[in-house]
Amino acid sequence: MNHYENKKVTKITDEIIENRLEPKKVSQEQIQREFDYIRAEKLLKKMLEKGLITVAEFDKITALNRQTFSPVLAEIMP
């Protein structure tokens, strides 16, 4: 069996390059919310590790943090 079989090559053209997505501009407010979310999650993880909260409480607070801070990547976070 030839190891080149089933390989697909895509030619990059000017049309493909011109149709690429433009990067989104992030506001200072969004950056601050992202930072605050990360800080809150770090603190929450420390509380869980020390046994101050249960896993169920951790999950509930994490969900609330995502609603409160609206991090950009919340849609793909577990």
Rank of each mutant, 00 (worst) to 15 (best):
L44G: 01
I16K: 12
Q28V: 10
S70V: 13
I12H: 00
T54Y: 07
N65L: 13
K25Q: 11
D14K: 08
V72W: 11
G51P: 01
E15N: 06
K42Q: 07
E75H: 13
K24Y: 11
K46S: 10
R39M: 10
K11E: 01
F58I: 08
M1L: 15
S27R: 12
N6W: 04
L73K: 14
T54I: 08
N65S: 04
E41D: 07
I38D: 02
E5I: 14
K60P: 00
E18G: 06
D36G: 05
E5H: 12
R66G: 01
K24C: 04
D59L: 12
K24S: 09
P78H: 02
P78Y: 03
N6A: 10
V72H: 08
I31L: 08
Y37S: 00
E18R: 14
T10H: 06
T62D: 02
R66L: 13
R39D: 06
E49W: 02
E49I: 10
D59S: 13
T54V: 09
T10G: 01
R33C: 02
V26W: 05
K24W: 06
N19A: 12
Q67P: 00
N65G: 02
S70G: 05
K24M: 12
I31Q: 08
A40M: 03
E18L: 14
A63S: 10
I38L: 11
E18S: 15
P23N: 04
A40W: 02
V26M: 12
A63H: 06
L52I: 14
F35R: 11
G51D: 05
N2I: 07
K11G: 00
Q32F: 03
L21M: 12
